[in-house]
Every structure is written in structure tokens, then in C-alpha cells.
Design a protein around this nucleic acid. Structure first.
Lengths: 118, 118
DNA sequence: TCAATTGTTGACGTAGAACTGCAATCATCC
DNA sequence: GGATGATTGCAGTTCTACGTCAACAATTGA
């Protein structure tokens, strides 16, 4: 699932046309077409600002869209900047090790979510 | 310690002038002055590209400088994009919970670092 | 004393990313 | 067959992050 595919999916799920969504997002409908088809001239994705707007207009999840566009969600970014060393260590784990740590979190660490996943 | 302060520290530690470092980094020395003094017109920090160049020229740690400039180091970024859900959960932990998980990693997860901390 | 070196600052310039917009073309669907 | 919607190439325009320039201040050292 690419970013563009997801945008299209969200748009069609609401039975909206390119023109309708583009108008609400204050962009040109041809640009939206290019976004959905991954045919942007330079860069693979639109700006973070526009991604947020599209999420809002389409009722999509901002973080999901940001990730599809290879951008770091705010909640994670904030925490990385607060605890960089911790994240460096976590990032250095292999996939199975990450899974193991997640199981540990699930079993040992309770009421973990103090803030929404954002 | 701000980004600019650290840059200046690195530069002075090598007894280099603004002009010398700027020349090596292919920028104007007045721009470097602003960077060190946190006086950039817009944005608080130079581009990621320039940060890397400065790290190289000054022999500084890229990740340290990136973090001071509120940018996510590559190693972490890559892993976040690979395992977003895991990082969301990790990021949602409180500080003490993160510390607990780090202790767990230290005690249970061996040969964790398959790649450099980058 | 004055000139050489170094650093600071406000105003200004610019390249590239982000986005526009048209024209031509195609596909569907009543 | 025309109304509606989408695609795409290409040449704009806009915006701002990035960086320069010119003038000046501070310090050093002969």
C-alpha cells in the first residue's frame, strides 16, 4: 500500500471526485491526481503540511499517512528528541529482539499509554 | 547546550576561524556566524545536508549534531519506518517505563547491536 | 596608531521544492 | 455523443529555506 493508493482509497470510500477533494484541500485536482498515482515531478510525496490537510479532509489517520510518506509522526519524533539514547538502543535491536521487548512491555509494563499514540 | 554552541565549541577546539571552517564547508562565513549564534532568519537550524558537512569538517558526531538540531538520526528514522507500530508503543512509555525496558534489554537481550548506532 | 584579523548583523538575493494550470487525451456511462 | 471524471506532459508561478553581501565593531599586535 503506497501513500497515493491510500489517499485514493480514502477518497473513493467517501465517493468523492478528485475535484471535490482537491477543492477542499485548496490544491489543484491535477496535482491530487499526480499524488494518487505517485507521479510527482520531484520528490515522492507532497509536503507534510498538505499530508495533514489531506488527512483532515479525508478523515484519515495523520500518522498512518505520514508513515506511508516516509515521515516521522510527531509523537515519536518528540519522544526521540527527549530520549535519543533510548531510541538509539531500541533502533539497534533486530526484529525478533524488538518483538521480544514488545512482549515484555505487554506483560510487565502496565498503563503504558499516557498519551494517545498520536 | 544548543546546536550553535556545540558547533562553536568544536570549531574553537580546533583553533579554526569562521572563515576557515566556512570555506571548508562551502558556505559563507557570515552564515556560519549566524548558525553559531542561533540567528538564522527563518528556521532554527541549517539543513541536514549542511549539518552533515559541518560534522565532517569539524570532526563532530553527526547524530549528536542532528539531535541538537532537532532532526532524527538516520539509523532511528530507518527503523521507525520499518517498525512504526513498535516505535509508537515505545514512544508511548513514560520515562521510568523506558528506563525499565532499557534495563530489560541490557539484561535479557544480548548481542543487540547488529548495526552501528549510526 | 593603524592595519590586519576576526566576528556580528540587517538587508538582500536565489535555487529548488511545492504547487498551479492548461491542453490533449482517454475511459465510462447514461 | 456529450457529460463527467481521470491522466499526464510540460511550462509556468510561488514560497521560503538557504545563503550572500556590505558595512561595521571588536580585538590584537607591530
Amino acid at each position: 500500500m503506497t501513500f497515493g493508493e491510500r489517499i485514493r482509497e480514502l477518497r473513493l470510500a467517501r465517493n468523492l471526485t478528485l475535484r471535490e477533494v482537491a477543492a477542499e484541500a485548496d490544491i489543484n485536482f491535477t496535482y491530487l491526481s499526480k499524488i494518487e498515482n505517485g507521479k510527482l515531478d520531484f520528490s515522492d510525496f507532497p509536503s507534510e503540511k498538505l499530508i495533514r490537510k489531506l488527512a483532515s479532509v479525508l478523515g484519515g489517520d495523520v500518522d498512518e499517512l505520514l508513515l506511508l510518506a516516509q515521515k516521522i509522526p510527531d509523537g515519536i519524533r518528540r519522544r526521540v528528541l527527549e530520549r535519543p539514547e533510548a531510541f538509539s538502543r531500541f533502533a539497534a535491536l533486530t526484529d525478533p529482539q524488538i518483538d521480544e521487548v514488545l512482549r515484555y512491555i505487554g506483560s510487565r509494563v502496565h498503563s503504558a499509554r499516557t498519551t494517545p499514540l498520536s
